[in-house]
Design a binder for these strands. Structure first.
Lengths: 195, 195
DNA sequence: TAACTTTGCGAGTGAATACTAACTAATGAT
DNA sequence: ATCATTAGTTAGTATTCACTCGCAAAGTTA
């Protein structure tokens, strides 16, 4: 796992904040430097290009997410509990650092660069795998109903959660993400959990 | 309802295609003019600015969607059938003109402009209203189960469908959108339809 | 203390961007 | 026949962009 200097982390977080507030189009080296009270050339001491800032930014958050969710999974018992824990962890993280959402859910904004859009699809695949494994385990153990297939359930669950996050973002973070997310997950679980 | 000249429609569709292929960042007046085999100033004969092209583009597709779905709704009987018809119409449209998806599902790409991002949220609200009305009608008539609330079901349904469209887009339109979308919708309906 | 490395700066550079000025050819109405 | 309108052109403009050059100050190491 790659390490970042303090300055690099600062730059990554400032870039994330700017993307969240004003969109990718507004992320310029000039703006970013001003946010950090640095000159433009100073940024190039820490990243060799603007693209590398974006690339590192994605890598940074992917690593964080992977480590966090792996820890969550290893401390859960049954399937339902695990799924609740996974989404709770995600929602807590988004709620604490809203800007992350703009980057992790950014299918369209990095479209212009192959390497970056690939990083974004890694995020999706990662989440997909966690949920698929959970559903499979739950269906095998008889905890979940088998009426709907693993892949269909995975799409419904991730789709419902993403939709909740999106609505929260569009509301200007004024809705209660954690509560709303929980409601959606419980709604779905009530339809598939055998009791 | 506003009318567009033939040239304006051409420009709108060329812009949509370019956004779909290369992202918003690649939509420049120069590129757009080249796509249409025109000079740059020629575009300004038809729209007074680049922003107006984008603004008209969104308006154009919102109108199309509204007209189309209103027609669909007026020719359906029970709730389940109506919901199937709504999503079938959406999926057929996306499948026939894939580039539209990049614009209608573009929460983040128009972030830089208030007027444009407002237009995007209109698209979401529109779909939300159609589905909410359907669920309410279905629950009132006893067609759908009342175990899960209207708003939660709406989020799950729209979320699941959007997720399907997103996966289709990320696959480079290689998956079968219409079939996959139908599978998701039937999966959800199987959990809520009383028979 | 001397040399080296790190991290910053002001002042640029060429390329790209949205948009404009000035002009022209064609069309259509009076 | 004349004249206005429409839709196109070439040749620009000012501004913004990512990025570079050469220099300096402040550690850090020998």
């Amino acid at each position: 796992m790659q390490k970042y200097t303090d300055r690099q982390t600062e730059i990554i977080e400032a870039a994330t904040a700017r993307i969240d507030k004003y969109g990718i189009q507004n992320l310029t080296i000039k703006n970013l430097a001003q946010d950090l009270h640095l000159s433009e050339p100073a940024l190039y001491r820490h990243f060799k290009s603007k693209n590398e800032i974006l690339s590192s930014l994605l890598k940074y958050f992917i690593e964080e997410m992977k480590n966090r969710l792996d820890r969550v999974i290893n401390s859960s018992n049954n399937a339902g509990e695990e799924l609740r824990a996974i989404f709770n962890s995600q929602l807590q993280t988004f709620s604490a650092k809203p800007a992350i959402v703009s980057v992790l859910f950014a299918e369209s904004i990095f479209h212009f660069d192959k390497r970056l859009s690939h990083r974004v699809s890694i995020v999706m695949d990662l989440m997909h795998d966690y949920v698929t494994n959970n559903i499979r385990k739950g269906q095998d153990s008889g905890h979940y109903s088998k009426a709907v297939s693993v892949s269909t359930l995975t799409t419904i669950i991730i789709g419902g959660m993403r939709m909740t996050v999106l609505k929260w973002k569009l509301s200007g973070h004024n809705s209660n993400l954690i509560k709303d997310g929980k409601t959606i997950l419980e709604g779905i679980l009530s339809m598939i959990e055998n009791n």
